[in-house]
Write a protein that binds this DNA or RNA. Structure first.
Lengths: 207, 207
DNA sequence: AGCCGTTGTTGAACAGGCGTCAATAGCGTT
DNA sequence: AACGCTATTGACGCCTGTTCAACAACGGCT
């Protein structure tokens, strides 16, 4: 505890780490910084300062600052997917409600970080947008998997290109509504919110 | 016709314009450039080149490049609102369908520009986000106005904070779906698309 | 017509942030 | 303890936003 590396923010003595640890440290730091700042506020200056390294070192691990940003978002998205774990049984719609509940809770608890992630994902960078869209798709896919295709068919939801299109749209709505609800519930209880969002899916998707 | 100002892109002779004309020229140019590029690809360099002015001149009309970006987005949003004009009668749901149709057509015809606008609007700039959110609200408000409060009440839609929250979310879904649909209809006809989106609103909003 | 003041306009200089590279110094190996 | 590998540094170049003193176009005044 006396030779803690955390003390060395000001000191300039070199610390030599293994490539894996250093890369990991930078990514972890990146996601942590993203919770408080915009992606383009994560400059090399800031990064170097916070990590206690020189500006040049970043380029031994990432080709450019942009590539680092991409890696950070990828990491943040992985975390999001991992943390919003699936839950167990019930009828399809209630199942959906429960899954949404987990998602809502996550957004509530990690609000600033989540908002930052979504903003980064809608930004100008093509690659980041794709990463986030894939993640969104993975999240909805997981919901479908849990509910089960036959179960969903009973409420009129069957898989098709059109269903995909509309499901993605539904996911966009969920994101938007949940973020707004967390800052101001507009008199809507958590249960009401979940039920409305859940019922909205078949409403949009069924022919 | 021989002394056309449009010829002077390379020449360096000074052109002195009235503040209003110059400001207007810059804003018009900005929105035109936005149709092809991202907001942060509109640099002072590019702007000066295209407008045939020096880099420094921008600062006589805007405090900073950011403020110029904001002004451009505001202009683009005004255009969007003006162009997607309201339409006339029918029952509430069909009315909604028609309004949505106008919106879909607009997005189809101005795809790159619209996408650019939406991306800019979800970016990091607080002020721009507010501008866009207000515009979105104005668009839905207009739809409500046209349909008429009593008419909407017949389908179970009544104004309340919760309704606002969910309507905004519905608008987010519409944006997302329409943009995706324009690039790839996923086997969905325009009519089907409009009907599904229209039916989604009461589905989400009614208690 | 010609001077003159106002002010739109310029271009050089400055600041700050990204990316490069030769030199430096930890750390494992012998 | 010397050596080699490579993680790490820090100064440098370049590009982009921003400032500012000087310049010049245009309308008004004589």
């Amino acid at each position: 505890m006396f030779s803690n590396l955390a003390h060395m923010t000001t000191s300039s003595s070199r610390v030599r780490m293994s490539p894996e640890s250093r890369r990991e440290q930078l990514l972890e730091l990146g996601t942590r910084l993203l919770a408080t700042r915009t992606l383009d506020e994560i400059s090399i200056e800031l990064l170097a300062e916070e990590a206690g390294i020189s500006r040049g070192l970043l380029y031994h691990y990432f080709h450019s600052l942009q590539e680092f940003h991409v890696a950070v978002v990828r990491r943040a998205v992985e975390d999001l997917y991992a943390i919003t774990a699936p839950r167990d049984v019930g009828d399809p719609l209630e199942q959906l409600s429960v899954s949404l509940g987990a998602y809502v809770d996550f957004v509530s608890e990690n609000y600033t970080g989540y908002v930052s992630l979504v903003r980064a994902a809608s930004g100008s960078n093509e690659e980041i947008r794709k990463i986030y869209q894939d993640a969104r798709r993975a999240l909805t896919d997981r919901i479908f998997d849990i509910a089960g295709a036959e179960e969903l068919a009973t409420v009129g939801v069957v898989d098709s290109p059109a269903t995909r299109l509309l499901t993605d749209g539904w996911a966009a709505m969920v994101e938007d509504v949940v973020m707004a609800w967390v800052t101001d519930p507009h008199g809507l209880s958590r249960e009401e919110l979940l039920n409305r969002l859940a019922r909205a899916l078949p409403a949009v998707v069924v022919a």
